[in-house]
Computed example of a mutant assay.
Amino acid sequence: MTEQQNTENAAPDTALTALLGRHSIGPRWMVAPGPNDAQLTQAVQAALRAPNHGRMKPWRVVTVSEAQRPALADLFEQFARDSGKSAEDVAIERERAYNGPVLVAWVARIDSGVAKVPPHEQWICVGGALSNFMSALHFMGFGAKILSGRKCQHPALVQAFCQAGEQLVGFVCIGSPTRELEPREPDDPRPLLSAWSVR
C-alpha cells in the first residue's frame, strides 16, 4: 500500500472510530459554546446525506434563540399545567426550555399520499437524518441529546413549531460536553445480525 493510499484510508478509519464512540449526553453536562451558524448548517448538510427515497426531505430543523427561551418556557409550562402537574413539576418543565447552549426543534412532515414512498420509509429518512445530524455534531466535538415525550404532541407546541401536516419530533440540546462517556459494556452487534433462512 502506498503512502497516498494510507493517507486516503486514514480519514474513513478516524470517522468510523468517532462514530463507534458516539453517545448522547444530558443537558446538565453541557456548557457553552455550542455550534455556531456555520457548524449547524454543516450538521444539517450531513443530515441531508441520510437515506431519502424520492428526495422528499420529510423533516426540517427550527432553531430556538436565547431570546426565545422564555417564550418556549411559557409553552412548556402550559403543557405541564394542562397535564395536571404539580407546581414543582411545572417549574421543572419551565427550566427544560433552557436546556443546552443551543437548542433546535426537529420537525417531520409525513405524506401518506405518496404511493412510491410509504410513511414508514419517510420515517426512516427522518430518523436517519437526525442520526447523521447528531453524529456530525459529535465529530465536531459537541455533545447532543434529543428530548421528546408527550409535550411534543401538545397543541400549543405543535402550533408554535409546525405547519399544516407536520409533527414535532423533539428538541435537540447541543453544547460542549463537560465529562467523558461513562464506562459501559461493549456493544455486541451479533444478536442483531443474522443470515436469511429461506422457509
Rank of each mutant, 00 (worst) to 15 (best):
M1N: 05
T2W: 11
Q4T: 14
A10Q: 10
P12V: 04
L19P: 00
G34H: 03
P35R: 05
Q39D: 10
T41F: 12
T41R: 14
A43K: 00
A46N: 08
L48V: 04
R55Q: 07
M56E: 09
K57A: 11
V64Q: 01
E66Y: 09
A67C: 01
Q68P: 01
A71V: 07
A73R: 09
A73I: 11
R81T: 06
D82G: 07
K85F: 07
K85Q: 08
R96N: 10
L103A: 02
V104T: 09
A105Q: 08
W106G: 02
I110A: 06
I110W: 08
D111P: 02
P119R: 07
H120I: 06
G128W: 14
G128I: 09
N132L: 01
F142E: 01
A144K: 07
A144R: 05
L147W: 02
S148D: 03
S148I: 03
P155L: 12
A156F: 10
Q159W: 08
A164Q: 15
V169W: 00
I174Q: 05
S176E: 12
L181G: 12
E182A: 13
R184L: 13
E185H: 09
E185G: 06
P186V: 13
L192C: 01
S194P: 04
W196I: 10
S197P: 00
S197V: 13
